[in-house]
Design a protein around this nucleic acid. Structure first.
Length: 568
RNA sequence: CGGGACGUAGCGCAGUUUGGUAGCGUACCUGAUUUGGGAUCAGGUGGUCGCAGGUUCAAAUCCUGUCGUCCCGACCA
């Protein structure tokens, strides 16, 4: 490729809209342009990188016994109504209708379409297992698209669906995908970690996310500093000390606590620790008013609450709703004496004694509140957020926190979709069985952005070799010097012949401009042909990832780079 | 969805308070001098000031509506 002809308009200034490194660098390097909010154009350089990531994905999928196909992006509403997700998926589902007024949506994921397909064409155990994947645009009308490619409304995803005859088959498909994903992200040169995850709107039980570790990540990870335990903060658990309090329950006592609407104010006023108090939260779970109890120093994990209740919508109750069900203002809420309200108790609570809670009476709290005696503890669940410094549920060593970018996720779905879409087969005994499914996704653009988050410096991107748009850039320092140009041209041709993907910067620009662009775009190798080195019959080879400039004889430059590439 | 802000040349911005018919930097084009880390000089191209109404002799500027974009929040009992 000749830089003089390449469509890669680099920017000196950062567009105001870009906030995180990957977005800024993608725009500045001329790789990405925005078309609408959350909708982007991949420019030629970015598309080369995207294709390389997709090729790695294809190789690993095919090696794991998957077949590529292409499902439609436009889905008829009927399929989504059949699975129930036409309602459940909510506003994120991008809906449209045709000229006859029939409802459709743009596919955010393809369980419905593929399960319907397989249900029609697979009838026998002899056709299983079946593992089908595709790489295509997905559509999710995000409430807030942001961070460039990290959270777009249109994005490219690899999605694979496995169909097995039983749980054991699913386990094998899941294991294969876990290995394939590990291979893919390793080959892309990423520092990542698989973590246990919530299965969310997709459904199913077991799930893991592949997190690319980065400070800018939207997702939180709790991991053990000693063993292999790692989970998304959404579902992370901690070691639970099941030793009941030895304290002798004392009688309830009402205390006057003026202006103690927060736990901080309360513990200041009473001079006690937050862990001696109870935190009372009220929610509207769909139409039901629910109270959630936690130790005062804990934070609630709403995902866990939602999963426990099995509701679609979970919102903090409004003041009017609290007044209506409890008859007390927020700030003085507690579980004692509450009637006709479901009380979800965090699993730590039953082991506590003589706690302080709101009295459901303005300006008053209760002392010596005892679980079981003063309020029911029959609805116990793990509903709290686990934080760094707590202890591992598996080995009791300390837990730590990290941020990550969710680049991929794998799920065991079970029979949720085969049931609703009617995906059945006959086994050896002629008996009808439901197929057992799994689904497995990778965000291709997000993987590219994550690679930049992890590999950059103040000058630009530092591409891992495997997904760099080109391997090398060739910079003749002066376009007026025919010797330099001739030497560069020869190396350019040699590189192409040797399979090195190279850009020759033949633009009539000053060397500073070429160097700045080379660093910004992040070619792994830069070969400079200047008058000084040329006088000795040499060129300069520099790696973007660091290290010093190597002077290499012109004839040996190609083999030098090939050798380096082999070791990367 | 709630809150905040912004829309003026490809990009970054000023001008809006106080109405008078649009400017700076950069990018781009031409020429000259330059040439090892985003050159200098000279000359140039490019904007219905997001859109639609309204007020006015006159609107980027004031009023109304509308569309778009970005940021923050959605853990407070």
């Amino acid at each position: 490729m000749r830089a003089s002809q390449m469509f890669a308009p680099t920017l000196r200034e950062v567009p105001a809209e870009a906030d995180i490194v990957s977005h800024r660098l993608l725009l500045r390097s001329g790789m990405l342009r925005k078309t609408a909010s959350g909708v982007y154009t991949y420019m030629p350089l970015a598309w080369r990188t995207m294709k390389k990531i997709m090729d790695i994905i294809r190789e690993e999928m095919d090696a794991a016994g998957c077949q590529e196909l292409m499902l439609p992006i436009v889905h008829p509403a009927e399929l989504w109504q059949q699975s129930g997700r036409w309602q459940v998926y909510g506003e994120e589902l991008w809906r449209l209708h045709d000229r006859h007024g029939r409802d459709f949506c743009l596919g955010p994921t393809h369980e419905e379409v593929i399960t319907d397909l397989v249900a029609g064409d697979v009838n026998s155990y002899k056709q299983l297992p079946l593992r089908l994947y595709q790489i295509q645009n997905k559509y999710r009308d995000e409430r807030r698209p942001r961070f460039g490619l990290m959270r777009g409304r249109e994005f490219i995803m690899k999605d694979m669906y496995s169909f097995d005859r039983d749980e054991a088959g699913l386990d094998e498909s899941y294991r294969l995908m876990h290995q394939a994903y590990t291979n893919i992200f390793t080959r892309c040169g990423l520092n990542f970690r698989p973590v246990a995850a919530d299965s969310g709107a997709i459904g199913g039980d077991t799930s893991q996310e592949f997190m690319v570790l980065a400070e800018s990540g939207e997702a939180g990870i709790i991991y053990c500093t000693s063993c292999a335990y790692a989970a998304s903060t959404e579902i992370a658990t901690a070691y639970l000390d099941k030793i009941p309090s030895q304290a002798i329950p004392e009688p309830l006592e009402e205390v006057y606590t003026p202006d103690c609407k927060t736990i901080d104010a309360l513990i200041d006023f009473l001079g006690v620790l937050a862990k001696k108090t109870l935190k009372t939260l009220c929610y509207m779970a769909d139409e039901e008013f629910v109270m959630v109890l936690l130790r005062g120093d804990r934070k609630v994990n709403e995902i866990k609450v939602k999963n426990h209740l099995g509701c679609l919508e979970l919102n903090m109750a409004k003041d009017e709703e609290i007044q209506q069900h409890i008859g007390s203002p927020a700030g003085y809420l507690g579980p004692v004496g509450v009637k006709n309200v479901r009380i979800v108790v965090d699993q730590e609570i039953p082991y506590l004694a003589n706690m302080i809670s709101g009295a459901n009476k303005d300006q008053y709290h209760l002392k010596n509140v005892n679980p079981g005696r003063d309020f029911p503890i029959d609805d116990v669940a793990d509903v709290r957020l686990v934080e760094a410094g707590e202890f591992c549920p598996q080995c009791r060593h300390e837990l730590a926190f990290a941020r990550g970018i969710e680049a991929g996720q794998i799920f065991k779905l079970g029979t949720k979709y085969s049931e609703s879409m009617g995906a059945k087969f006959l086994d050896e005994n002629g008996k009808e069985q439901l197929m057992v499914m799994g689904c497995y996704g990778i965000g291709v653009g997000r993987t590219m952005a994550a690679a930049i988050e992890q590999n950059h410096d103040e000058d630009g991107i530092i591409w891992p070799l495997a997904i760099a748009p080109y391997h090398a850039v060739l910079v003749p320092v002066s376009d007026k010097d025919p010797d330099q140009m001739a030497a560069a041209e020869k190396i350019y041709q040699d590189m192409i012949r040797a399979g090195v993907e190279v850009v020759i910067d033949d633009r009539r620009e000053r060397p500073g401009v070429k160097f700045k662009d080379a660093d910004l775009i992040g070619y792994p190798f830069r070969v400079t042909i200047g008058s000084k080195s040329l006088a000795e019959g040499k060129g300069e080879v520099k790696m973007r990832s660091g290290g010093k400039v190597e002077m290499v004889t012109l004839d040996e430059i190609v083999s030098y780079i090939l050798k380096k590439m082999k070791n990367m």
